[in-house]
Structures are given as structure tokens and as C-alpha cells.
Design a binder for these strands. Structure first.
Lengths: 223, 223
DNA sequence: TCACATATCTTGTCTCGTATATGACGCATG
DNA sequence: CATGCGTCATATACGAGACAAGATATGTGA
């Protein structure tokens, strides 16, 4: 995403962030082939860091790698979108509940919300919204849960890049975000979790209505 | 785990499975350094596939990689164990509920249960138990949920390798497994999910009682 | 005993060779 | 003449080994 702060990022990290950013912002479209040699030349590095970066992204489900066929940006369909938001619904409200119960600080979320309001372009809003959601589940107390929600959030962003055209109602998003944060700041754990649940569920229902399922997006088999 | 069926597995896959197996069976102890050159020599391959395998395992949380310092088998402590089973409690009962609701076939689970009973050594039982749990959540209908539960199950196995000495009550495990399967076969989705929840919760409580938390196991930061 | 220089070990990166899949072309055949 | 099949060329990823960069451990001097 942004350049790493102080330490010199390894080339692998650099390529990883660059490709990830390109995918999540939609510059690299789903299905597009990611040729190692091309990316290597583009970033001015050798193929090795490119390979490792692609492998890592494949592990996070953003790209798919076929043996001897190379990597492509993961294609998204309605079924895959439902899968992502489905699991997210199981985890993110519960994480928020714990954040609130633990009485964690939420200034970061408030700041992200203001940045979202101040943002001019959709890309900036989207970025701020990502930060907002993360600020809600980051202090939940379970680092593994945090990591999984990070992965889910990235996949959701990939999905969003497709479904966004149908969902321009960012004002509704902002309103719901404020509602969630208000309840969280009130210490109403169940209310905040419930509001977050509805927020996510209503989004997926608007952006990916049922009934138009595509064949199925293959998820990397692991066994 | 086992050798891939028909196609010749790539060297990376081979190393990946071998190292994973060694970690999950406890042959490679947590904290142990995984030197690329050593593994490469041991498996008769170059460093390249070893590096990629380690990177993949790091992505799944089984090994930790530090820049220029190398990879080590992930260390486990009580806090980390609670993290794993905590998330598992959020996902696995729900997955089973869906499996039952969808009316999926469960012969695989029954077969795994029989294999567990027939197994002579603890390693065989552990393997069969892994298969049993997977058979319950595999047909849940959400491939992403399946993938995450696979990852959680592997981490749980890593944890188990430590806590196992304190938990020799495999008969209780078998009894609870039969109970879960019976309810699932009856079509009692809520009952099966509830039984699975209790099964997991009681296990973690016996193997990792509260109160003796260690500092915190670092989870690979991703941002 | 501590600070600093150096030796050694390990990882990160590069370059080149090999294995595999895909697509095009030509030939045989209905 | 159209069509299906086999062969080959090319593109691409996979893997090996060499080199460079960084980190840790050791030894030496004050």
C-alpha cells in the first residue's frame, strides 16, 4: 500500500505491496495474467522476488497460480463474493463485540471516519473505510482473528472493485459507520455488533443480489 | 501429507508437505531453526523450492520468518492456543450446522471415526481425528470457510503437539465424536453444532487451562 | 569487563538452464 | 472440401547454483 516507514523494504515486500495495491485498486483486472518476467522488468528487479510475492498473494487468495501456467488475478463472481462476506459476517461483528467489551480505544476509527468524509475521490473513501473497519477489529484481543479479518478485508476489496459500480451510495455507508461507532463508544457491545452485522449484510445484498450465481470461483485447494 | 495422487508433485510441493508433516507430527519442535541450506541438502533439492515452501508455511502461520534471520517453527504458548481454538469455536460449529442443513453426505466422517477406533498408536488416532473434523465442515458449501478451517486445524495440530501429554483422554474424544456424528445424521443441525462447540471448548479448557498465560505469541503482522 | 573489529554463517537476489503447457501448423482421413 | 489428429515451435514457469548483503558470534585490545 503505502511505502514502508523507515526500514528498507526487501524487494519481495516492495513487489508484494505494489502488486497488491494494483489489484485492490482495480488497475490489475481479475483474470489478468501476471507474467513473472513482465512484472520483473516493470519493477526493475529479478524474477525471484516477483515469484515469492505472487506466491504469498496466492496464499492470501488474491491471485491463483496454476502449475506451469503462471499466475492470474483472481476472478470474482457472485458466489465468491457471498463466500467472503459470509465468513466476514461470522467474525467481524464478534470481533467488534470484544473490542467494545474490552473497552479499547477507538480514536483511530474516528479519525478514519473523518478522513472518509473529507476524501474527495472514491479511492480515498474506500481506503479510509478499510482503515475504519480495521480499527474496529484490531483491538479485539485475538491476533489470529485480526489476521483472518485482514485477509477477508483484502478479498472483500477485490470483490468491491467489481461490484462497486452498482453501489454508489457511499452516504449510506458513512451514516451506518457513524451509527456503529456511536454505539461502540457508548459501550453497547451487542448493539454495535448488531449494527455492523446489518451494515455488512445490507451491503452484500445490494451489491450482489441472489439468483445470478456464476459457476463457482475455484478456491485454492490445500489438500 | 500423503503423496499426491497421479501428477508428479513439484519439488516445492514435496518440500512443503514434508516440512508440514514434520512440524505437525512434532519431529520439528517449535522454535527450531529451519535453515534453508540444511533442508535443501536433506531433501536433495536446491534452496529455491525450500524458500517457497517455507514462505507458504509462514503464510499459514506454521513457521515464523524474520528478515535475514531465517525461519523457525512457530512457538506455541497458552495465549496462542486460546486464539486458535477461539476462532475455531466461531467457525466450525457454524460450518457443521450448514453441512447438516444442506443434507450433505457424511460417510467420510463415519469412516474416519472407525479408523480412529481401529488405530493403535496416538499418531494414527490424531490423523483420523483430523479427517473426522474435516469431513464435518468440508461440505458446508463455503469454500473460503473450508480453507480457513483447514488452516485453523493445522494450527490446532501444532498446538496439540505440545498440549497432548496432558490430554490422554482419547476415549472421551471418541465418545463426543460419535455423539456429534449421531446428531448430524439425525438432521439435528443445532444439536450437532452445539455438541461440536462443547467438544472443542471442553478440550481447550482441559488442555490449556486459564491463568498461565505467557507473554504473547507474535503473529505475523501484515500491515 | 567492555568496545570494537573481524570472521563466519544465513538469508536475499540474480542469472542461467530445464521442464512443461499451449497454440499453430500441416497432414491424413471421412 | 471440411475436419480431426499428431507434431512441433514458442512462451512461460520451475529449479539450480553463484554472488552479494546483512546479521550474529567470536576474538582481541585497552
Amino acid at each position: 500500500m503505502d511505502i514502508a516507514p523507515s526500514p528498507i523494504p526487501s524487494r519481495t515486500q516492495y513487489v508484494l505491496e505494489a502488486v497488491k495495491h494494483a489489484i485492490l485498486t482495480g488497475r490489475l483486472r481479475p483474470g489478468q495474467a501476471l507474467v513473472e518476467a513482465e512484472l520483473a522488468a516493470q519493477f526493475g528487479v529479478s524474477k525471484t522476488p516477483v515469484r515469492e510475492a505472487l506466491k504469498t498473494l496466492a496464499g492470501r487468495g488474491l491471485v491463483v497460480m496454476s502449475e506451469y501456467k503462471g499466475a492470474t488475478v483472481r476472478t470474482v463472481d457472485t458466489a465468491m463474493a457471498h463466500s467472503v462476506y459470509d465468513v466476514r459476517l461470522l467474525l467481524e461483528p464478534e470481533a467488534l463485540r470484544r473490542t467494545v467489551t474490552a473497552g479499547a480505544a477507538l480514536e483511530t476509527a474516528g479519525a478514519a471516519l473523518e478522513r472518509s468524509d473529507a476524501a474527495a475521490d472514491p479511492a480515498g473513501r474506500s481506503l479510509a473505510n478499510r482503515d475504519f473497519h480495521r480499527a474496529l477489529y484490531l483491538p479485539c484481543g485475538n491476533p489470529l482473528l485480526t489476521r483472518m479479518l485482514d485477509e477477508l478485508r483484502d478479498q472483500a476489496a477485490l470483490v468491491s472493485a467489481i461490484g462497486r459500480q452498482a453501489v454508489p451510495s457511499w452516504e449510506r455507508e458513512a451514516r451506518e459507520h457513524r451509527e456503529i461507532l456511536a454505539r461502540a463508544l457508548d459501550g453497547d457491545a451487542d448493539g454495535a455488533a448488531s449494527a455492523l452485522h446489518d451494515h455488512i449484510a445490507s451491503f452484500v445484498q445490494r451489491a450482489f443480489p441472489d439468483g445470478e450465481r456464476h459457476p463457482t470461483a475455484p478456491v485454492a485447494d490445500r489438500e
